[in-house]
Design a protein around this nucleic acid. Structure first.
Length: 582
RNA sequence: GGGGUCGUAGUUCAGUUGGUUAGAACGCAUGCCUGUCACGCAUGAGGUCGCGAGUUCGAGUCUCGUCGGCCCCGCCA
């Protein structure tokens, strides 16, 4: 059979408008729905741009053809565009319709397990298995179109700023620090492994040593850790590195980039973004990625608490506890049951519980045995609105702040407006934290992060007090980026490795090539990586990163479409010199 | 690794105290219908109650295990 050539498409279904009226066009698409009214049939034909109503009336030569058409059948339809006598205002193409003169069935479809239009009412499990049907949905098509646009915008923007797109290896070395690696066995060197990059960190730093000065890459990263609504084992980041610069300049570039990205959906992002040191973020929000849309902050009640004559609090205070609290607007009316639930939540979050205080109709009430007068005084002195709920947590400072911070986010959900954007730079992270499990220092960011120069003298005496030149970009409580100024001095880099308790042998084996590069004129440099998927998710107001990744994995790291990961043949294993245990 | 929650027709769900033949809506099939756009009307087909074991005279329902989806904690330099 001779190959039948397709006609050139002049217009998409979803793009047909009044100006096409009278013209003869050919469109291609999938049958979204069909309505048969006896001698008259309507077909909603769908392509990536939208729907177009096709009319099949008595002028159509082959009505028997309709019997072979069902949902998701792929058609080519030629005919004349006509103005509708009764337009459909719900459809962008609703002023017109296409009167079919010729219909070709290009592909048939079995009855689909669900129709794209109805994806919102179908389990995610089924949508993943038939992801290609799921993505026919016009909202999904919009998501991926926007994702593509953002990608292009970022490239153009960064190119314009003098950044070069340079690719780095996907097959690279396992890293001793950080997340679990995905390993790839080497066939030629049996027993040795490549690892997929958790980020191109060392390569981009080497590109700075190589003198490119400004690098970017929109690239895949891999981390073998458990998944969440905003976490996938492979994800994309906009990776950026630049030489001879300071954070202020980088912040400016990122802010303008983010502003342009959000303008694609009509957001007017005000610059510059707010900045908060890690210390302040923890003190005020109990989180290093606070959602600033929530209208209340953590307050310190330690001084007042000392005067309440509560045995419970007094014994805690004697041990050096702090009393941290929240004043939550409009929560004073919570029922006893709701307050008990908050207490349960606090316990689930790892706390001992919370104390609540409120003003009821018959006076001040509290879950703590304390004189009502004391509460009244507190409400007056702090000018707490009568409808508010006061929640208190007594514990050592750090855990008290963490718990209060979690409660702040948990109880603040009703204040979250989807179309409000609160960007925030969190800066001055501690360089190290103490790894309780392994009883050693660990990098907060990564071991290439530069300490603040004014804290250098504390490295030996009080390493936990040393601040790093490290920063995170936070949007509405979600970390969308992070970076740091890097160490470009070999002596300092060696010292940091040693402080992290890395064996001399490991340093040499894992980072020898990198330390070597620092010997040959490494310029001062800094960088950042933006989580591309999270950015798109927030841009689109989606709640899950899976909505904007074409073929995502489930929360247990499976691909329901392809069935990966899967077994491999004995021959493949033999070639790699690998034996599977059990 | 831990906690929560869900799994019944193609889909979304209901299913009483453990009790006869497991229901509804949508979808699907067939027929009728010339202005529908959630078309309408009529008729019909469609079930390994995720899987396995146990308790019981009897299990969709109770117990244990297991597989899978989602959310959270840990983890994510």
């Amino acid at each position: 059979m001779a190959e039948k050539k397709l006609l050139k498409r002049e217009t998409y279904c979803g793009s047909v408008r009044e100006e096409h009226a009278g013209r003869t066009v050919t469109v291609y698409g999938w049958v979204n729905n069909m309505r048969e009214l006896g001698g008259l049939t309507f077909i909603d034909l769908r392509d990536r741009e939208g729907l177009l109503q096709i009319v099949v009336n008595e002028t159509f030569a082959d009505p028997g053809l309709l019997k072979r058409i069902g949902k998701e059948t792929v058609l080519a339809v030629s005919g004349q565009v006509a103005r509708r006598t009764k337009p459909n205002p719900d459809l962008p193409s609703g002023q017109v319709e296409l009167v079919a003169q010729r219909i070709d069935i290009l592909a048939v479809s079995e009855v689909p397990p669900f129709v794209p239009e109805n994806r919102g009412n179908v389990s995610e499990e089924l949508r993943f298995k038939y992801r290609y049907i799921d993505m026919r949905n016009l909202a999904m098509q919009r998501n991926f179109k926007l994702r593509s646009k953002v990608n292009l915008l970022a490239r153009n923007f960064l190119d314009h700023e003098g950044f070069l797109d340079i690719e780095t290896p996907i097959l690279t070395n396992a890293t001793p620090e950080g997340a679990r690696d995905y390993l790839v066995p080497s066939r030629i060197y049996k027993g040795k492994m490549f690892a997929l990059p958790q980020s191109p960190q060392q390569f981009k730093q080497l590109l700075m040593v190589a003198g490119f000065e400004r690098y970017y890459q929109i690239t895949r990263c891999f981390r073998d850790e458990d998944l969440r609504a905003d976490r996938q084992p492979e994800f994309t980041q906009i990776d950026i590195e630049m030489s001879f610069s300071e954070p202020d300049e980088l912040f400016g570039i990122i802010e303008r980039l983010v502003r342009e990205i959000f303008a694609l959906r009509g957001f007017d992002v005000t610059l510059p973004f707010r900045r908060l040191s890690y210390c302040d973020a923890m003190a005020r929000y109990g989180s290093d990625k606070p959602d600033l849309r929530i209208p209340y902050e953590i307050e310190d009640f330690t001084a007042e608490a000392a005067s309440w004559k509560s045995d419970l609090l007094d014994s805690a205070l004697a041990k050096g506890a702090k009393v941290k609290g929240l004043v939550i607007p409009e929560a004073g009316s919570y029922s006893r049951k709701q307050l008990d639930e908050i207490n349960e939540t606090a316990k689930k979050l790892g706390g001992k519980g919370v104390i609540w205080m409120k003003k009821a109709e018959d006076g001040y009430k509290s879950s703590l045995k304390v004189a009502p007068d004391a509460i009244a005084t507190l409400f007056q002195k702090r000018q707490i609105a009568p409808g508010s709920l006061v929640l208190l947590v007594a514990d050592s400072e750090a855990p008290a702040l963490l718990l209060t911070g979690k409660l702040r986010e948990h109880l603040g959900k009703k204040f979250l407006e989807k179309n409000r954007l609160e960007f925030l730079w969190v800066t001055d992270f501690p360089l190290f934290f103490f790894n309780e499990e392994e009883k050693r220092l660990d990098s907060n960011h990564h071991p290439f992060t530069a300490p603040c120069s004014e804290d250098l003298h504390l490295l030996d005496s009080q390493p936990l007090e040393v601040k790093a030149i490290a920063y995170d970009l936070v949007l509405n409580g979600i970390e969308i980026g992070g970076g740091s100024k890097r160490i470009h001095d070999i002596a300092l880099q060696k010292k940091i490795f040693q402080m992290l308790n890395l064996e001399e042998k490991d340093i040499e084996e894992k980072f020898g090539f990198f330390l070597n590069a620092l010997k040959f004129g490494a310029p001062p440099h800094l960088g950042i990586a933006l989580g591309f998927d999270r950015l798109i998710m927030l841009l689109l107001g989606e709640d899950s990163i899976r909505e904007i990744i074409a073929f995502p994995k489930t929360t247990s790291s499976l691909c329901l479409l392809t069935g990966s990961p899967s077994s491999v043949s004995q021959r493949q294993l033999d070639e790699l010199g690998i034996a599977i245990k059990n």
